[in-house]
Amino acid sequence: MSDMKSLDKKVILVTGAGGGIGRSIAIEAARAGAAVVVNDLGATLDGRNESSASAQAVVSEIEKLGGRAVANGDDVSEPEGAKAMVKQATDAFGRLDAVVNNAGILRDCFFHKMTYENFDAVLKVHLYGTFNVSHAAAVVMREQGTGSMIHMTSTSGLVGNFAQANYSSAKLGVAALSKSLALDLQRWNIRSNCIAPFAWSRMTSSIKVDSPEQEERVNRMREMKPEKIAPVALYLASDEAADTTGQIFAVRNNEIFLMSQPRPVRSVHRDEGWDIDSVARHAIPSLKASYIPLDVSADVFSWDPV
């Protein structure tokens, strides 16, 4: 470890940090000088069978590096669980400078086969979990007059994907929530940003392979390591990012993208107003050239990562 550390004296809470992207962020945060609350419910990919062993294993790794960390096994989908993990951060380390809302589950299924339970469960962890942890953290950060919130979104929500109505809804909701947090909390110097990560992890390992094209896509994803996400996340947690808020980044191997956010792309006007016929004959033909294609994420990010 170097003497100059970009996150010295910072305290960071990382949810879903028992493996994959969260684990990498937690370990690299410790390397950069931060004290880390390693949260993980220890659940299986679909959110069942809980155990805190994975969080404790990451804490042990950090301590072997000479870093400071504590394990937390609370549930982000429960408001009281979120409050408990934030309290653990302040009890153990005296403050809370950043949260990384990374915890997630998957229950992929085509929409016409999706149950209410599977829609609800995914929204509860991703969207409600992001709300719960951010809401609890905001109390501490407002008192401090500073803080950073980093949320994991996905191109499944920003662009689209098959068989992920629950996950896509949650992840696009996270992006909208992040913008609201950035607007509402800026007076206390609290920042809020999103990252859409491309990385091979426990979550992406569940992608169904039912064609040569899918197999090729999955093989490309295997090359994208979760460690590649940490530098952007930890930059956003640092003081260097003081003027960055309300943004959406994507990270794919060695590529970093700034993602667009919805804005008008084309308009039509009619002095006398519109009726069904004029909409059909004039408005839609004028607007149709700018329609957004029915793409999925792989169509938009169609080139091999570098």
Rank of each mutant, 00 (worst) to 15 (best):
G16E: 02
T153V: 13
M4D: 10
L106F: 07
A84D: 09
K83A: 14
G129Y: 03
G145T: 14
A242S: 15
R95V: 07
A230T: 04
D275C: 11
E215M: 10
I195F: 02
Q261V: 08
G18H: 03
I25W: 01
D243N: 12
E50H: 12
G47P: 11
L41K: 05
G19T: 13
S302C: 12
S297Y: 09
G18P: 04
E213Q: 14
M85W: 04
L234C: 05
M149S: 01
V139C: 00
D108C: 11
G157D: 02
V122N: 07
T130N: 06
A137N: 09
W274E: 10
I190T: 09
I207E: 02
R191Q: 08
N72Q: 01
D299E: 10
G94Q: 05
K225C: 00
G66C: 12
N132G: 02
E223R: 12
A196R: 02
D108Q: 07
A89P: 10
S286Q: 14
A250Y: 00
Q144W: 11
G73A: 15
I284R: 02
E117Q: 15
L172T: 11
G19L: 12
A176L: 00
A89R: 04
K228F: 09
L158I: 14
M221Q: 08
A250R: 01
K87M: 05
I276A: 15
D271E: 15
M4T: 11
G157W: 05
N189K: 12
V279E: 06
R95A: 14
H126L: 09
C194L: 02
I25V: 14
E216P: 00
S178T: 15
A182M: 04
R217Y: 11
F119D: 06
A30W: 02
D210T: 13
V11N: 06
A138Y: 03
S297I: 04
M85C: 10
C109Q: 14
R187D: 15
A71K: 03
A121H: 11
R95C: 10
S260T: 13
M203L: 15
A69D: 08
G20N: 04
G42T: 08
W200V: 00
V86D: 06
K87T: 12
L185E: 11
S77W: 03
T130S: 15
V36I: 13
V306W: 05
W188D: 15
F110G: 00
G104I: 10
K171R: 05
W188Y: 15
Y235V: 01
V70W: 03
L127F: 09
L185D: 06
T15V: 04
A71T: 08
K124I: 03
T155L: 09
A170M: 08
L45A: 14
K5A: 11
R31I: 13
V133E: 05
W188R: 03
V70M: 08
G157E: 03
S54E: 07
E28H: 06
E223S: 13
L7R: 02
A43H: 08
V11K: 02
A57H: 08
L7Y: 05
E216K: 15
R23S: 10
K225P: 00
R266Q: 14
A175E: 01
I27E: 11
